[in-house]
Design a protein around this nucleic acid. Structure first.
Lengths: 206, 206, 206, 206
DNA sequence: TATGAATGAGTATTCATTCAT
DNA sequence: GATGAATGAATACTCATTCAT
């Protein structure tokens, strides 16, 4: 019986893929903590417990590594899953839930968010991915709102604006929450946010 | 006959102050365009038309220069002026105006905003100043909203949330507007934003 | 039934020898084109279509590979063959032919010549081989000239000098011919060279 | 009396020019000894007794330094001076003298010759300068020979070939002399070379 | 035999900072 | 005040070589 060279190659390939993943994950953490520019390849290698030369076996350059990081950890799938739960549910009931889940998702992806916020200028792919996520997310969310308008649950209005209002506010809430938490806790904040958005803050007319 | 040392000193002081200001202004532009880390002192000096060594006559280090930049260009005064016009004006009338003015102010301070967004990790003073501006601004804005609630113009609600909703949305709108403009134009967006915020987006109860 | 180990070994040896030869041939081309130092082992392996590690099965080091290249492609045999045709032929008749053949031989070995010219400092074996070829060639050539002197066909003179004059001129002609061809074509040049050498360029004494 | 800023600047400029020259001279020696590729900038700086960073104050890159070296040490002027002594002198009398002087000039420029021979591939300016020197030199030499033909001192022949024969032979003689000196000493060699060239090596007819 | 993952020393270059003039 | 020569540490990246499979 001949040896199976294919099997062996596959095993090596798997190991290599694991290693690649490990390097990406380590880089995500270190980039988020220290920033892309202030992180040296030597540091990355040390953090991953490998020789610096190995970085270049897996990634052509430090820039390409950053690309790999943002591509691999882009939370598009989770965002889609999250937003797919919207459909056929009444707005007042789900907006708070989805808002809080979105906030939580951003929290889980804190490292990535750090990169999105700070490394925009380092490499063009970073804002491109971020823009992709936001646009897609806003778009899906807007579709839901449009449906609800059609159903007469929401009044006719510019849903791009309301979608962005909710999304932007939560994104920046998340951004500032870590750095300098404020009085109102996030959950409570989002509850109020949705209430305000639905009912308005103006006093009921006369 | 010797010249009076005092006169000369004053004249020289003025020149020095001008020069200092010039270096700060140049640095603001270059930092905003290229990022703090990717800008060398040599580049800054060249952009200002002086020798590199001169930078260190005016600023102890590159970091201190960054501090000087964010301190000097902090738009706190303008923000306070802007918000001081709020008082004793009815909300529906002024929110749009103030919102648009705020958006425009952020636009004028685009270079500084770039630094706030991207150089948070470079030096602790950057997020500190940014946080100061935001907190102060939000606080003043919230005070105004509280007044309007007292006057019965707005319904009782968490004004911290509504203040932040408006502020955060406009900030991120500004941030994304330059990089990737979206369908709705800013002015229109802010109009809708204020309308939504005041009246809510829920359909009027039957 | 097991295969005879001897047969297998022989077959494998042949394959191995082929592979070795292939690696040497590839290396010759790449070294000549890019230079020894500027060629990485990775590049060599890629050019030969094998993994880098395999290079070290066949050659102990990059230096040893260079040795193998210059040893294998040393054109000593061809040179000897070429010069062996000299004997018993009259000088005026054969010098031009041999000169042109020598020029052509150098042309065929252009890659090797490139290595001889540029990589002298890389590894001591390179100038050693080159010196060997030249000295042996000059020596054989000189022997021929000495014979012709004895036969009275050439006048008594320092044949080391005349041998080197012809050889050096053709070598450098070849070296410069590729890089920057000059007015006189090589064939013609060599004809004139031999004519001059035999008859001298001085005007016949009155 | 005002201080003379110009004088001071000039003094600094002089110092800078001296330093520049020193770095070039040091580089010439080290490049010649170790080869361009095998010499690190750190080594160059150490050999010159300065910090490595200073190299980049004076030369934009290692390549530019090599350019500066070959440009500054190109022996074109000396070669022209040497060849200008030819005119109006009879060939038999001066060819040996000029030949030996040329050999000696090459010897004085041994370091530069090493670079010309070995670093052709490193940077395009190296062969360009070498070609310039050779072409100009050959051309001037050929002009002289043409004159002598016109005067009836030399017989009509292809002077490009005879000029190159003498030049090439001496160049390679010089190149091999250092590496592996041979039996005939250079002076003697050149005497024989000129004798052969003038009188030919064929036995006198009849 | 053949692979390619892994190593670690080495390289050119950049840069903030100092200082004599 | 102003210059730019000089420093030396840091950085991204390359490469010959080794070795487990």
């Amino acid at each position: 019986m001949k040896p199976e060279p294919h099997r062996r190659a596959t095993w090596r390939d798997e190991k290599a893929e694991e290693r690649r993943q490990q390097l990406i994950d380590t880089a995500l953490q270190v980039f988020a903590r220290k920033g892309f520019d202030k992180t040296s390849v030597r540091e990355l290698a040390a953090a991953a417990g490998v020789a610096q030369g190995l970085m270049y076996h897996y990634f052509k350059s430090k820039d390409k590594l950053l690309e790999a990081v943002v591509e691999r950890h882009s939370f598009m799938p989770q965002l889609k899953t999250l937003l797919s739960t919207l459909h056929d549910e009444p707005a007042p009931k789900v907006l708070k839930v989805v808002g809080k889940q979105f906030f939580e998702l951003l929290g889980q992806k804190e490292s990535l968010m750090n990169i999105f916020f700070h490394e925009t200028q380092s490499h063009p792919i970073v804002p491109r991915i971020w823009r992709g996520i936001m646009n897609e997310g806003i778009s899906l969310f807007q579709n839901y709102l449009d449906e609800r308008v059609k159903l007469g649950e929401l009044r006719p209005h510019n849903t791009d604006v309301s979608a962005r209002t909710l999304a932007y506010t939560i994104v920046l809430l998340r951004g500032t929450a870590t750095a300098f938490p404020h009085r109102t806790r996030a959950d409570e904040f989002i509850s109020h946010l949705v209430d305000n958005t639905l009912s308005g803050i103006a006093a009921p007319a006369g």
